[in-house]
């Protein structure tokens, strides 16, 4: 109440024009900006309190508060960004993979559900492939071998034929026996082959009007995929990836999976 009264006084012209003593009374009552704008009052303030004027104090506090809020805000923003990045990793996954219905080299049915619970490496090719397919399958088999020795059989190598006209079950059986002992060879009729290639974003093109006995090559995409134990796409490896690149990438993913679920697959 007292200070209010004083403020009233101070705001009046009487106060401003009053003597030094009453002026001081006013100053202690309020931080009167009005006063410091006055030439005489300002010089007097300086002489009494040094450089730490009310204006400077206000600026100091305002800057401090401003910085504090700015840092709080930045911190929150960065945390939000990190959270989003993690989310993006899930969201940004290429939409590769999906339902398919094929037959193994033993004549048993095999669908996308059979991929669950294990990591898989999937290569698309054909048994009459001159050099690239066997090279890639050798690389894949060697990588699986290495992972096997550290983690056990948690990565399933798979070969899917893109040559439905010539690659019979028996032919695929003979072909896959050349590579990793656990390699599964899959085939389907033209429609199911087309369908699996579509969901896996694999291109293949057989020459038109081919017969089973014709000698031809199939043009196709030559990378192999790493899929996680949920059957979700992780990575595609091309000719440029070495066996060690593949192993390192798989081990990294196994590590992340272990952090998340406590299991290696």
């Amino acid at each position: 109440m007292n200070s209010l009264v004083r403020r009233q006084i101070c705001k009046s012209s009487a106060c401003l024009k009053s003597s030094f003593r009453s002026n001081r009374t006013c100053r202690t009552g309020i931080h009167s900006r009005r006063m410091s704008t006055l030439p005489e009052g300002g010089s007097r303030d300086k002489s009494t309190v040094g450089v730490f004027t009310p204006k400077a104090a206000a600026l100091f506090i305002a800057t401090g508060a401003g910085l504090f809020y700015y840092f709080q805000y930045e911190k929150a923003r960065l945390a939000e960004q990190r959270r989003k990045e993690l989310e993006d990793k899930e969201v940004g996954r290429p939409n590769v993979g999906g339902p398919f219905n094929l037959v193994t080299q033993k004549g048993e049915p095999f669908t996308e559900k059979d991929l669950l619970g294990k990591w898989s490496l999937i290569y698309f090719g054909f048994t009459n492939c001159p050099d690239i397919c066997p090279e890639e399958l050798d690389k894949m088999s060697a990588a699986v071998e290495k992972i096997d020795s550290t983690y056990g059989p948690i990565v399933q190598p798979i070969f899917i034929s893109v040559d439905p006209a010539r690659d019979s079950v028996a032919q695929i059986a003979r072909y896959v026996s050349d590579f990793h002992p656990r390699l599964i060879g899959l085939r389907g009729d033209y429609a199911s082959t087309k369908a699996v290639c579509k969901v896996y974003r694999v291109y293949f093109s057989t020459p038109p009007n081919t017969k089973e006995t014709d000698d031809y090559l199939v043009d196709h995409s030559i990378f192999f995929y790493l899929m996680d134990p949920n059957g979700k796409f992780v990575e595609a490896f091309g000719k440029a990836s070495t066996e060690d690149d593949v192993v390192a990438r798989i081990e990294k993913e196994i590590g992340l999976w272990k952090d998340k679920t406590g299991e290696t697959h």
Binding site: T127, N128, P130, D131, P134, A170, Q171, R174, Y175, D178
Partner: peptide
């Protein structure tokens, strides 16, 4: 005949 046509590892090697 068909089985003979199937290029296995040693056949590929020979061809290469």
């Amino acid at each position: 005949k068909k089985e003979d046509d199937q290029p296995l590892r040693h056949d590929r090697q020979k061809c290469w």
